[in-house]
């Protein structure tokens, strides 16, 4: 920007002061904190710690705060899961079988099974065509079907999802193909079992629950 341009002009026209060309604090003579504050300390700007050292101390704290918040940004990812665990909002709730497995025969919950696949070119992924009706507390097994449509081996993984979300906390999976990567030989078809208990804590008015898996290819995309 032109120093003689409009914005600079009034500054230099200022009466009563050192002209701009005689600035005392060119960067070449400044210490780390800049000279002016140091000068200030000498001239008696002096509530507590108002010195170059004070500035350094304050800024150090602020830098630490900034770095901590940067780390916190990343930590939000796991923290969010922890939060969901605590509040029972987690999608993948405790997988252990509840100790007290009495079956609540007085009611039934309909489980709808849904399959989604991201890379239709590679896989055919199918859910059982009919929903299953289960008693809370009852051990249930269903099977999905996965087919490799290509002439090469594939690795993939299923990601579960539940609707309504509140149902997630009540799905206790004893075994699920989603725990593991799936490796399929060319044109191979496999049946993938899920063994689960819908625990008795599931709300009485929750009569239909959807369990969905989305299958993704893993590894480098071809």
């Amino acid at each position: 920007m032109n120093p003689n341009g409009p914005s600079a002009e009034p500054l230099e026209a200022a009466p009563n002061v050192a002209p701009a060309s005689r600035r005392p604090c060119g960067p070449d003579q400044m210490d780390e904190a800049g000279e002016t504050p140091a000068l200030h300390a000498r001239l008696g700007y002096g509530r507590s710690g108002m010195s170059a050292a004070g500035n350094q101390r304050t800024s150090r704290w602020l830098v630490v705060l900034a770095l901590a918040m940067f780390a916190f940004g990343f930590a939000l990812v796991p923290l969010y899961d922890v939060f969901c665990d605590i509040t029972g909002l987690n999608r993948d709730a405790a997988q252990a079988l509840a100790n007290n497995t009495q079956v609540d025969a007085s009611r039934k919950v309909r489980i709808e099974l849904v399959a989604n696949v991201r890379d239709e070119a590679l896989w055919r992924f199918a859910a059982p065509s009919q929903p299953v009706d289960v008693h809370p507390g009852e051990l249930v097994q269903v099977e999905y079907e996965l087919e490799n449509l290509t002439n090469r081996p594939l690795i993939g993984r299923a990601v579960p999802s539940y609707a309504p979300l509140a149902a997630a906390a009540h799905f206790k999976k004893i075994d699920c193909f989603c725990f593991r990567e799936q490796r399929l030989a060319p044109y191979e078809t496999v049946r993938l079992p899920v063994l689960f208990v819908l625990d008795r804590g599931v709300a009485r008015d929750m009569k239909v629950v959807t369990l969905s898996y989305t299958f993704f290819a893993l590894g480098k995309r071809t």
């Binding site: 960067p27 800049g34 000279e35 002016t36 504050p37 200030h40 500035n55």
Partner: peptide, 8 residues
């Protein structure tokens, strides 16, 4: 204040 804490 005469300037910012860290002019540079």
């Amino acid at each position: 204040a005469p300037d910012m804490a860290f002019p540079r």
